[in-house]
Design a protein around this nucleic acid. Sequence first.
DNA 1: ATTTTATTGACAACATATTGTCAATTGAAT
DNA 2: ATTCAATTGACAATATGTTGTCAATAAAAT
Lengths: 166, 166
Amino acid sequence: MPDEQRTKAGEAVTALILDVFRLNGRLQLAGDRLVSELGLTSARWQILGAIAYSDRPESVACHARTMGVHRQGIQRIVNELKREGIVELQPNPHHKRAHLVVLTQKGQELYEAAIARQIPWVNELSEGLSPDDIATAQNVVDRLKARLEEASMRQDQSSPPEGSMN
Amino acid sequence: MPDEQRTKAGEAVTALILDVFRLNGRLQLAGDRLVSELGLTSARWQILGAIAYSDRPESVACHARTMGVHRQGIQRIVNELKREGIVELQPNPHHKRAHLVVLTQKGQELYEAAIARQIPWVNELSEGLSPDDIATAQNVVDRLKARLEEASMRQDQSSPPEGSMN
DNA sequence: ATTTTATTGACAACATATTGTCAATTGAAT
DNA sequence: ATTCAATTGACAATATGTTGTCAATAAAAT
């Protein structure tokens, strides 16, 4: 199989990927606008969301893995949020270094304020779209994501030393 | 309408957005790996693609608009690519400052080498996915993107001075 | 023709993301 | 128990993206 041409699905996924890049940019921009008055940004908001949604407190590295990004970026922002009293670190009974990140009262309120702005925004954005189509889109996106995660895992295992996410 | 709760579609789109963020991260990572040996990155590759795909040479600002990002980021990378002989700037008969960006021979070859790596990669990634589902996904993503662009336009028009993309 | 507005490249400051390294700690292997 | 690989936070360097400003140019308005 010389792989000189894209398959039909390959063609369609290539087009989808380009649109995902552009949509991501637009979402980032819209998110920044949506929460800028709260002193938040898209990046901070996403991290608050990860902390708020996790069933129990987790370490920075664990959140990074779940979000599919590098530890260092999360660490930097969590350190800032800590200085601003939005999150705090709890001792981890199972690990001396890997402290657990939790929202402070202030962080909770901030996150709820962000949600209060997101709800009418997303309701308007999604108005008139078919729930079935949205579900199909999510399914495709999720499957692509899962495949890339697998492939990423495989590559990481084969060659380099050093831990989870570098 | 108090907008205290998300509609069904709003709920589904919120979930889709979170997946788009994660997929974008994975794609960026995979893209970096795919072309790193060529001395490229995802960002550079995307810009080369925009230049290669445009029907005729366009200015930096025009490419930025098409890609939905800020002029300055494109400008910085285009300047680097120019220094490396991957792109060059042609005089624009219609505008003294807004030079037109084109690929050099080296840039052409580089972009083709990137495509040669992307084809087997995307063929494998999309294997077994329903073309209909992919098309539906692309349609949803595209419509969300279009709505955000509209909304962004509306906001930009209302208040600030300064040109297209700031 | 003159004035006003919009576009554009340049520059700078900052936010975010990626990559590599290090030492402390943990857990598995022996 | 000792050794060794993996995980984790810290730090630094670099790449990328965002925001604001400026002067030059172009296009529109008058």
